[in-house]
């Protein structure tokens, strides 16, 4: 068990190093006309050269990388080039916003998809049809378009929810919930669609196993067959789905935050991408990968707990 976990942690670390290196090469390697962009069309060559020296991008790439790594290990991701703040401050301030939205979304997906998927697998009927329709609708409605429609209908016309903005939970829990309702709704639809389909499949698979008939033949209660035995065997597949959903939500948040003007990690990424704020982009990528790695390790642990064969 301990070996399994340490193996996973090690391979995650390698992944983190590889991806950051690659991203660094791509992002800083492409930062040729950043100074020009920042200073505008009328900047002189001298001004540009001065800014490049100030930002440190006149040095060879590997020197820049070594410099970045040395500081990054200490948690210092440098200064933003365009926002006048340190990257760590920008990222940490906005991480909470995005995380609160994504966490609510993951739990919503998990709960709704489990209920729907299990009901469909066991009873069929309406839940089965709902999943079939959802699988098409949820997949083909882009979340940002859905977000726009929700804004037009529920914010502009019905005025039930605010169209844009974010309220801190500590400021007003109700305001926080109201601000997040539409974004989360727009985010979760496709997730529910794909997750419920997979939960249904995993559950049907589990119920089709030979031992299910044998358990029933032994007089075991249907509730125990269903929830103790079948569900436990369907769990690994369902957990894996959640980890995939989490990753997808991190990307989806970038667009949704833009639609609803939420000051999260996603909208700062878009802003940085458009302005070429390379240190911020690096900070975001590193943060997101660490998040994904943490979630994956949690899910692996849960899987190992459920599935004895993994535990060896």
């Amino acid at each position: 068990m301990l070996r399994y976990v340490s193996k996973r942690v090690l391979s995650s670390l390698i992944l983190l190093v590889l991806v950051t290196t690659l991203t660094f090469a791509m992002v800083f390697g492409g930062a040729d006309n950043v100074a020009q962009n920042i200073l505008g069309e009328n900047a002189t060559d001298a001004q540009i050269a001065a800014l490049e020296t100030k930002l440190g991008i006149d040095r060879p790439l590997y020197v820049q990388y070594a410099d970045w790594v040395v500081h990054a290990v200490e948690g210092d991701f440098g200064q933003s080039w365009t926002m006048g703040e340190s990257v760590s401050r920008i990222v940490s301030g906005r991480l909470i916003v995005t995380l609160s939205m994504v966490t609510v979304a993951v739990f919503t997906i998990g709960i709704v998809a489990s209920l729907l998927g299990i009901t469909a697998a066991v009873k069929g009927g309406w839940a089965d049809r709902a999943i079939q329709v959802l699988s098409v609708v949820g997949f083909s409605l882009p979340n940002f378009w859905l977000g726009l429609i929700l804004v037009v209908v529920f914010a502009l016309n019905l005025r039930w929810f605010p169209a844009t903005g974010y309220v801190d939970f500590s400021t007003s829990p109700i305001g926080w919930a109201a601000a997040l309702t539409l974004p989360v709704a727009a985010l979760v639809l496709s997730g529910i669609a794909s997750a419920s389909q997979q939960v249904r499949g995993a559950m049907i698979d589990a119920l089709r196993q030979d031992y299910v008939r044998t358990l029933r033949a032994g007089g075991i209660k249907p509730s125990s067959v269903l929830f103790r035995h079948a569900l436990r065997n369907a769990m690994p597949a369902a957990l894996t789905v959640l980890s995939v959903q989490f990753i997808a939500l991190l990307g989806g948040a970038a667009i949704i935050e833009r639609v609803f003007a939420i000051p999260g990690l996603g909208s700062v990424t878009v802003q940085a991408a458009l302005s070429g704020d390379v240190p911020v982009l690096m900070g975001v990528v590193v943060t997101m990968i660490i998040l994904v790695v943490l979630v994956n390790i949690l899910i692996d642990l849960a899987n190992a707990w459920v599935n004895p064969k993994v535990r060896l």
């Binding site: 992944l15 991203t23 791509m26 992002v27 492409g30 990307g251 667009i255 975001v284 997101m288 990968i289």
Partner: peptide, 18 residues
């Protein structure tokens, strides 16, 4: 490894270079 990257974020990060 590729699957554990949020693709949209990566595409955003690469936007300037691409």
């Amino acid at each position: 490894g590729l699957m554990s990257l949020p693709s949209l974020i990566v595409l955003l990060a690469f936007y300037q270079s691409l």
